[in-house]
Structure formats: C-alpha cells, structure tokens
Design a protein around this nucleic acid. Structure first.
Lengths: 216, 216
DNA sequence: GTCTATAACCGGATAGAC
DNA sequence: GTCTATCCGGTTATAGAC
C-alpha cells in the first residue's frame, strides 16, 4: 500500500525485520497454545496474550486461525526432516540408525509442543495438511526404506519390514514428547531429568538396534 | 420423579434398559466425534446427530460435555487394562510379552478412536483425567515393571530398562491407531489390510523380543 | 504497523410442552 | 423419557481511529 518509490531501503528492511520478529513470536506462542488445547480449543486471544501482542495483530499477520495453524505445522514438519542427515550420511546401519534415533529423541526433548501439534493433526486425519503430507512425506519415506532394504540384501541387518522399523522409531521417540505427562506420572510425578532422558535415548537405541540384529 | 410405589418392576427394568442403550449409543458416537475433532471441537450437536438422538437428550443423560468426555476416557482406560492378562498369566518372557503386544495391537485395530481420544487427552496434559491417571496407572505399572526386573535378575532377558520397554510397546502399538492416517498415506493411500496388520504385529513382536535378547 | 470496539456467528445448556 | 425453541456467553474476524 504505502510502498512509494521514495521509501528508503533502510526503512523497508527494518520494517521487514519487525514483521519477521512478530510473526515468529506469534508462531511460537501458537505452537504452545495449539499443543495445550487443540486447534478448535486454541483461541486467537490466548495466542495473542501469550505472544504479548493485541489480538488484532495476530489477524494482521495471519488472516485466519487456520492459516496460522498451517504455518506452525509446516514449520514443525521441516524441523522433523532435519533429523535425516545422520541417517543419510552413513552407510553403516548402526551409526546411521543410532544417529537418527538420537536426533529424533533430541528433537522430542527440544520441541515437544511441535510434536504434539503434529500428533493431534494426524490423529484427526490431517484435515489441514493432508496434501502437504502426501507431497513431502511419501518420497522422503520411500528413499529411506530403500536404504534399509539394501542393508537387508547385504546381510547387514535381520530381514525385518523397514516400514515397521520406521514406525517404531517415530512412535517411540515422539512418545517422549507427546506422552511426557504420562511419563511424568510414572516417574514419581517429576519430569525426566536430562540424565534420565539421555539414558532413555541409549535404551531406545539399544533395544531397536539389537532388535534388528546389530551388536552395539 | 414419577417413581411411585405402584410402578411395576417390569417397567422399571425396561426403562433401565432404554437408559443403558441410549447412553451406550451416545458414548460410542462421542468417542468418534472426540477423536475426529478434539474435546473443544466436538459439539454436543454433532454427537447427538451421530447417535441419532436430539441434542437435548445428550444433556439429559450426561449433564455436561465434560461429564460425557470423562466417561468415554474412563471406558477406554478400562479397555486398555484388559490387555494385561496375557502378560500376567505367563512367567515365560516370550509368551507373556508377545501375548501382551498382540493384545495391544488387536485393541488398536479394534477401537482406534478410543486410542485417539486417550492420546489427545494425555498430549494436552490430562486436564480431565489427571487424578484417575495417578490412581489407576501408577500401581498397574509398578507391578508389571517389577516382573521385568525379575526376569532380568534371572538372566532370562537382557538388562534393559523396563520403563523404556513398556513405553516402546505402548508407543508402537498405539501408533497403529493414532497415526493410522499417516500410515495409510505411506501405504499407497490404502488402509492396512488385515494381512498387513497381522504382519505388522508379527514384526513388532519380533523386533522388540529380539531387542531384549529373546529368540523366537 | 498498532490497537480498540464491535459485528456476526456459534455452541452449551436449559425451560417447558408433550 | 423425548424434543423444540431459546437464552447466554464466548469466539472469529474486521472496521476504522491513531
């Protein structure tokens, strides 16, 4: 609207910075509120308050609640995919899988609310990100399961179903984020300490790798 | 109100039957609607329509939406606990654990919406069933992890952390219910067939049992 | 870009007839 | 026990001043 030719570059860039900062603040707040109350339960007002901005500003940056929600989910999905390098960069099954499991565990610890929002979206049948799911996840999955198949052919690991293996890894690592409350109840009411969490990562690696015929 | 002393027993029992039937219908419908839209997203109207009764009748049997929700959750939790016998009734680790895993997989297949409602409740931090969670789950868990510890002491299985083992079993088996949509996307868009599901159960048993040092 | 005020809508719960 | 009509509170989204 006010983009006149005379606007100094300085101003435009600083405005851009404000915009990015605010959007980030709002998205972080939204991730938490969506995780705690679900899509419908989250109110733009609660998100705004958490982000420390007036409600109208949320709608200024994200026209609708659904838009904001979609942005949060896509951001989480990108974050998920960033766990792949440890898996991709090694041809040794133990190193690749252990690295991947640890990366996923670290993510679950680092950003549990992202995991929770993702989980609830899938549980509901992915009404909002269904297309995205098809586009991004399918090809990602086929490439990686192929690598497992190759290891099996080479006799490096037991002949297991690669899909089941991935589901087990995803389910277990994300469980530590999504079911953190239940885990806390079963841990004398206290959240897992860093030591306990590191120990859990070790255990998950051990059981899964042993489970497919690898020695540690 | 109309409970006069002259009411024939016949009528009272048949009224009781009507009551139970209607409550059951409503709870089944509610489980599906809660699973698909979350607690806040579920409307009593949608639940009523799905159950084939007027909205006011839902409120007649369940004063508030939260009451209905709590009933559904507790019903699901009882159903969960019914998977324990295979585990309890054998002292052989392979038989006990394999039986438990298969029972949990069957439950995930049989009643996926129950699993989803449960999952979303825990993800949100269990605001509604927190007390229930403490009361029921804690003691259940301690008894069973003790059994695993005993097997370890007897050298029957590898020295793994029993908690991690249970979390892996829960996470993986429930993943087949909660993330069914994602699994479907990665299965050429088709839901798992009975054969595929049976195969998945076999695979989960194999990887986990092998993972803790058992031969099949 | 920020914020107050408000329009338009929707959903939980209930009153009261049958 | 069943059902229609309705009230009331709360939520999304926007209009328009600053």
């Amino acid at each position: 609207m006010s983009e006149t030719g005379s606007t100094p570059k300085q101003v435009r860039t600083s405005q851009k910075k404000i915009r990015e900062t605010n959007m980030k603040r709002i998205m972080v707040a939204a991730e938490a509120v969506f995780a705690e109350t679900g899509f419908k339960g989250a109110t733009t007002d609660a998100i705004a308050r958490r982000a420390g901005v007036p409600k109208a500003n949320v709608h200024y940056y994200f026209p609708t609640k659904a838009d904001l929600y979609r942005k949060v989910i896509e951001d989480v999905c990108e974050y998920w995919l960033a766990a792949a390098p440890p898996f991709d960069q090694s041809d040794d099954p133990t190193e690749a899988l252990c690295g991947y499991i640890r990366a996923k565990m670290d993510q679950a610890r680092e950003r549990p609310n992202g995991s929770r929002v993702w989980a609830m979206e899938i549980i509901r049948g992915a009404p909002v990100i269904d297309g995205y799911l098809h586009d991004v996840l399918q090809s990602w999955f086929e490439e990686r399961t192929q690598k497992i198949e190759d290891w099996i052919k080479l006799g490096k690991i037991n002949p297991i179903d690669p899909r089941t293996l991935f589901y087990m890894i995803w389910a277990t690592t994300q469980h530590y984020a999504d079911f953190a409350h239940q885990i806390q109840v079963l841990n004398e009411g206290k959240p897992l300490s860093d030591e306990q969490f590191a120990h859990a990562s070790d255990q998950v690696c051990q059981i899964i790798l042993t489970g497919i015929g690898l020695k540690l």
